[in-house]
Design a protein around this nucleic acid. Structure first.
Lengths: 241, 241
DNA sequence: TAGAAACGCGAGCGATCGCTCGTGTTTGCC
DNA sequence: GGCAAACACGAGCGATCGCTCGCGTTTCTA
């Protein structure tokens, strides 16, 4: 019978493929996509987003994604070399979209803005984006994302860290760099926690958690900024609109 | 997806305690363990803790756990009906140990203790426990834990939430219950984030993050407690260097 | 209109994983 | 010593999953 197990296999194509000839120069595959193909890709990415959001990355099966998109597994692999590539492409598109739409969220360190204004602006933008694209949280903060995705996450993490550090150092020019880094790490972590709670609720409750998150960040940073930008003791009447 | 097993094995007496006699000893188990067996169980749980910590729950294979313990897969299943039971038992033992050792961490709401003292005591205890048992974080906050484990997590979450709410309401008797719940949720989330950062570092850096976490909690709660327990405006000597 | 290429299908391959089973060894008790 | 139960082993079953392959269909191009 064909029930011959324990076939150790001579290492065969277990090399996980990855990308053919990815090392060094990127060998582009001149695949001419038709309009129908582009439509399928968008359709598949949308389906993947849904499946990833509900089940997470590693628990999501490619067959499930294909089924969600209403196509066969073979069709899926017509457009993506493997499962990881789907997440990469999806994450990449979201990253690009985020940069285009909210790229300047943390950039301007206008010295005339108060701490509350800065926090409110940054939090509102990022929260809005993540509420609109819940997959983003799954792909970025998910624990089971593949190696290539983790790189993308680390890159985003480093970028945000750098921006927060820059913003903080402009408020605290004489701070210890190590302390600054810790504070920035803490801010990112606090934001992540708040985002998790925000995504877990809806409507008025969600907005309440957004306010709470802002309070956390402002109260955490206010004593550091101190009287430099002043008036951060009690955020007073609802800072959000 | 999972637990699709329809072939109920012969010894499917897997009532496995829990249900009713939760705190009593486990009856229903006609299996007389010898001293050797108890040793094996401890050995297997230790191996499982190591594997879970490094690879997470769902990515950990039972064969890997058995290998780590130096036994065969068959031996592992001599003591545990399935993979989930290993995590359950491990989590249960850790929970019990935590309750025994640090059970009173959040319990006393001594009106003479200040906010800083309460936060410091609670954080120090829980951080210490989690640093000593890193698996606990993986099992509790891991995203891929099985259903039964999630229940245990939810139970712990609810317990901690209740204690925090009680503690807060003793400081804010006239607070809105919904607001109180949100604040407690936020505190737990902040703690979780801080714990994540603490576990990711070592030595002096780790201690610095512990301090930072305390600052976050104290500064977040101080304005709420206000002048009730007083002197929470600026948490003592310069928080930063 | 003919040929090529992109698109589409779905059965199924190869590998892994949770778990079992038949068999042999050790331990506790009489 | 004798016997039953607990312990130990490891090949392998059954199921799933990522992915492939052969072949049929649609679309583009000349």
């Amino acid at each position: 019978m064909s029930a011959n197990r324990e076939k150790d296999g001579p290492q065969s194509q277990e090399g996980q493929a990855g990308q053919d000839g990815q090392d060094g120069q990127e060998k582009e595959q001149p695949r001419r996509r038709q309009a129908r193909g582009e439509r399928r890709i968008a359709q598949l990415l949308e389906a993947a987003a849904a499946v990833f959001t509900t089940t997470g990355y590693s628990a999501a099966s490619t067959n499930a994604i294909a089924r969600e998109a209403g196509v066969s597994p073979g069709t899926l692999y017509q457009f993506f070399p493997n499962k990881e590539a789907i997440a990469i492409e999806l994450g990449g598109r979201l990253m690009r979209q985020m940069r285009e739409t909210y790229g300047e969220a943390l950039a301007p360190v206008d010295p005339t803005t108060s701490l509350e204004e800065a926090v409110t602006a940054a939090v509102d933008r990022f929260i809005a984006f993540n509420c609109e694209h819940p997959v983003f949280f799954t792909l970025m903060h998910g624990p089971d994302v593949p190696g290539r995705m983790a790189e993308e996450h680390d890159a985003l993490h480093a970028t945000l860290l750098g921006r927060i550090e820059a913003l903080l150092s402009s408020l605290l020019p004489d701070a210890d760099p190590a302390e600054l880094n810790r504070t920035a790490q803490m801010c990112l972590g606090l934001y992540k926690t708040g985002l998790e709670l925000v995504l877990a609720h809806e409507g008025a409750e969600r907005e309440a958690y957004v306010r709470e998150l802002k309070h956390v960040l402002i109260r955490y940073l206010a004593p550091l900024v101190g009287d430099r930008l002043g008036r951060a003791g009690t955020p007073g009447p609802a800072p959000t609109a």
